[in-house]
């Protein structure tokens, strides 16, 4: 059993990673694992010499961060309204949030392109259109998470605030938000990380100044620059891993929420 698990893990993780790392440090990846084949030249090139590679990583992170944050805030609001039945026909709102899930990224991108590229908006190639597209793409993940989180909260917890004289806003601020901060952080990471790699929508919507890392990597593979590609990919990995680690630490440490009443 254990052997099998290791084998699967190896196939899925170690082997591709091994070759990725090898390529990133190689002078030429075809020459194998020898010591004489190791250098930091690829990293130096990608970070300092290449015109847009470093910028593309920054773009990826900024776009993903803004998108993840807006998705979490938007879906929290909608999920709260829908779950607590604050408006009639809330179910439709909820469905709209999940709908993008069935739309392929490419189709979504073309839709965005058609809607926002022509004047007067003329957003094509700008950061806002990328952020809008990412926000839409990841709305379903955010919504499913937010609505599960809110449903796990007993509404009596908020009613207790109201009875004691607090408004619904007080309840949200003092009770709902603190109790959900853990699941919301989780949802944020769940959106942020894939958003840094999003390719299918980005490839249609980027402009000269808004190229993101995934598109950059795709370009490099087209050109056959596997060493640079590997180095850039590795940089992306190394930058995201600590986030995951911080996230896990934060989630595990939140002992107060151990027994969130259901």
């Amino acid at each position: 059993m254990f052997g099998y698990a290791v084998f699967v893990a190896a196939l899925a993780m170690f082997l591709p990673y091994l070759f990725l790392i090898q390529a990133a440090f190689a002078k030429a990846w075809g020459r194998g694992f020898g010591l004489e084949n190791i250098s930091l030249r690829n990293f130096h090139f990608v970070l300092f010499e290449h015109g847009t590679a470093a910028k593309s990583v920054l773009n990826s992170f900024v776009n993903a961060g803004v998108s993840a944050t807006s998705v979490v805030i938007l879906t929290l609001g909608v999920a709260y309204i829908v779950t607590r039945r604050l408006v009639p026909f809330g179910g439709i709102l909820g469905f709209l949030c999940i709908a993008p899930f069935v739309i392929p990224g490419v189709v979504l991108a073309i839709g965005f392109y058609a809607a926002y590229a022509p004047p007067p908006l003329a957003l094509c190639g700008t950061a806002p259109i990328l952020i809008l597209a990412f926000t839409t793409r990841f709305l379903p993940i955010g919504y499913v998470n937010a609505s599960a989180a809110i449903r796990s909260l007993n509404p009596e917890m908020e009613e207790a605030v109201c009875v004691l004289g607090g408004s619904r806003l007080t309840a949200l601020r003092r009770v709902v938000a603190p109790l959900l901060k853990r699941s919301l952080l989780g949802a944020w990471l769940l959106i942020f990380i894939p958003a840094t790699r999003e390719l299918s929508a980005a490839i249609f919507l980027y402009g000269p100044n808004t190229k993101v890392a995934s598109v950059m990597i795709f370009d490099m593979s087209e050109e056959g620059n596997f060493e640079y590609l590997a180095a850039l990919a590795l940089i992306l990995q190394v930058l995201t891993l600590p986030l995951l680690w911080i996230g896990q630490k934060a989630l595990g440490r939140d002992f107060m929420l151990r027994r969130t009443a259901t």
Binding site: N154, A160, P178, L257, A261
Partner: peptide
């Protein structure tokens, strides 16, 4: 309330 609704935070 039946659930007490004590705020865990």
């Amino acid at each position: 309330f039946q659930s007490y609704a004590i705020w865990p935070n």
